[in-house]
Design a protein around this nucleic acid. Structure first.
Lengths: 354, 354
DNA sequence: GGAAGGTTTGCATACGTATGCAATTTAACC
DNA sequence: GGTTAAATTGCATACGTATGCAAACCTTCC
């Protein structure tokens, strides 16, 4: 109780505890290792000694032995988009539940991610979640070699050799196209996200595919880069045209909120003067002032799948890669004119089911 | 190039590289340790061998020796409040610049933080940033004993023995009170944040103190708990009164945005029918649809100070604790009626300087 | 060419814990 | 009480790297 009070003292180790408790270091280790064999008597002695010295097991040393760090590396783009903030929070909560901690890596905007990954791997993380980032085939191979579970979140890779979890972007955007046509819109526009992202590719493809199937022309198109400011500019351009669109599908909610802001500037009312639809279902979109009509990305479900994939691979490194595509729902609020039919209410949300 | 290709192979170690390169393990270590003494020749040999084997230094083993993990523990509340998302992102960016990584700990809503800290310390983090969390004196003492740099961010502790960085909440809220009175408001209201937080205490104290000094009655008061939903309820109650307030000071921006949403519901226009003021200066407040008048928390500056405190203590554990209070500015936009004078424009922002 | 000084290298050990193994103690049972 | 099985314990070693130390090497200068 007294000798550990000086500043900068050498940290208390299992040996110190063992000495004080009159047992071996192994005994100390075993009392702190769940499932090990210790008699109630020694356990008590050890725990008392540990408490009196303020002993705390050194997880770094433990990791070196067990080859498990209990860390999950998470690479995530900036948190300017609230969607990513939610992803991180949910991931953190889910993994903490399982006894894992999050080692955070911010990916400065979609630069090459390889150097960052190189760094991550040195930390001996037990698993890796790449949010909206891609994985070079070299690293995919590398991770498989060392048996490191990896999952791409909200992004797919070309190859099927790496696991991924996405929402059903194609069906979602097809549904949006169908919803807008059913609502009697004539002149559609699409505000694209980052051109390099798989989500944008899929959302644009699904949207355009449905329009073409219905013999409609392709939508007007601007690029908002998945950012608020980008979408402000894009929407202004769209609405300043001689023949402006009567409906705008923004490839994510953040951009849709920007579009609503532009409407506000122009004294236009979303849902009456022009329809705005997003993709994500952010909490902000539910705010009364926005009331955003959007296609849901079921975050909780997606997180659950991602965690399961990691756990499965952790339990058996031989588990093969899997591409999960989680279906979502069309959430109807006030920013888009409604179709004549198909609106149902499901646990507090209005859903469109064609 | 060939033997590391099988799945689940034992990871490549410095010994393997040494053997292939025909040097000692020490030489390998030294080539990967910046500032160590290696001849160009052996360095080349080692680097070639390392590349061909795909060697990656094991930072866990290194940490065990050097007693530095290059990890900074960050404990942060949920990210429903965008302010925290920004804090995390900025912290991460700042520390990555210095070669540190963030180990993330979500604090489920203000439960006792001690068990979480207990856990953090086992990971041998080099520093600790507690965002809006307090530190029991027991742990403060503990951290000092083991020489672990700690800084409270956006919260102060009672004691001066632990470092903290906050914005100037008292001056800020005094300024808001003065601003509202100068704008001719008669009937003020305050929407409080979490009662247990030091920021809320200070903001309420400063606001009330100025009113009292001016011989004004205390404001109406509701509690919003720093949450959007809480502030929705609080604002509705305030505005439903027989004699509703003509100005509402919400203790943070998130609640102010909620208040604006309530105004929208009630067909009231903020800045004309009622004034709304926040505290934070979130990016969302700058959105055209909100145009929130607020008192700034200068995030970049605050992050810089926090990082500096950690670094100073890292360099010299004897460095004494310091309480940093960073001044902010009153940012004037559209949600509050303006005083007759004192508005100036500073790099694109309109500031009120009484 | 040789001495002095600097640079590079390998050996051995340490970091703090987990764990296989053998020895010992305890429990169980007839 | 004696035998067998089970539970507990300590010893010794391993994890992968960094580093003090002394030996080996190279450079420089007279």
């Amino acid at each position: 109780m007294s000798e550990n009070m000086e500043r900068g003292r050498r940290p208390v180790t299992a040996h110190d505890v063992a000495r004080l408790a009159g047992v071996s270091q192994s005994a100390v280790s075993r009392t702190f290792t769940k499932g090990a064999s210790v008699s109630p008597d020694t356990r008590r002695k050890v725990e008392e000694a540990a408490a009196s010295l303020g002993y705390r097991p050194n997880l770094v040393a433990r990791s070196l032995i067990t080859r498990r760090s209990n860390l999950i590396g998470v690479a995530i783009p900036g948190m300017a988009n609230p969607f990513y903030a939610r992803v991180l929070e949910s991931l953190s909560a889910a993994f903490e539940q399982l006894g894992y901690r999050i080692l955070l890596f911010s990916m400065a905007n979609n630069e090459d991610s390889d150097p960052v990954l190189e760094e991550i791997l040195r930390y001996q993380v037990d698993g890796l979640v790449l949010v909206s980032a891609s994985l070079s085939s070299r690293f995919a191979e590398e991770c498989r070699t060392i048996g490191l579970p990896v999952v791409l979140f909200n992004r797919t890779n070309g190859s099927t050799s790496v696991s991924s979890v996405t929402s059903d972007n194609i069906t979602g955007s097809r549904t949006i196209a169908r919803f807008l046509l059913a609502g009697g819109h004539e002149r559609l526009a699409f505000v694209a996200g980052k051109q390099s992202s798989s989500t944008n590719r899929d959302r644009e493809a699904g949207f355009n595919a449905y329009l073409q199937e219905q013999g409609r022309p392709l939508p007007l198109r601007e690029v908002g880069d998945y950012t608020f400011d980008g979408a402000i500019t894009a929407t202004r351009r769209l609405l300043a045209q001689d023949a402006p669109p009567d409906a705008i599908f923004c490839a994510n909610d953040l951009m849709a909120l920007a579009a609503i802001n532009v409407c506000h500037e122009l004294r236009m009312q979303p849902g009456r003067d022009v329809s705005i639809v997003g993709f994500d279902d952010l909490p902000q979109g539910q705010w009364p002032i926005f009331g955003l009509t959007t296609f849901e990305q079921p975050l909780a479900e997606m997180i659950g799948r991602a965690v399961n994939i990691i756990c499965a691979q952790l339990a058996d490194p031989g588990t093969s890669a899997i591409q999960e595509i989680v279906p979502g729902r069309m959430i109807v609020r006030q920013t888009a004119r409604l179709p004549a039919s198909g609106i149902v209410e499901v646990d507090g949300e209005r859903i469109w089911q064609p």
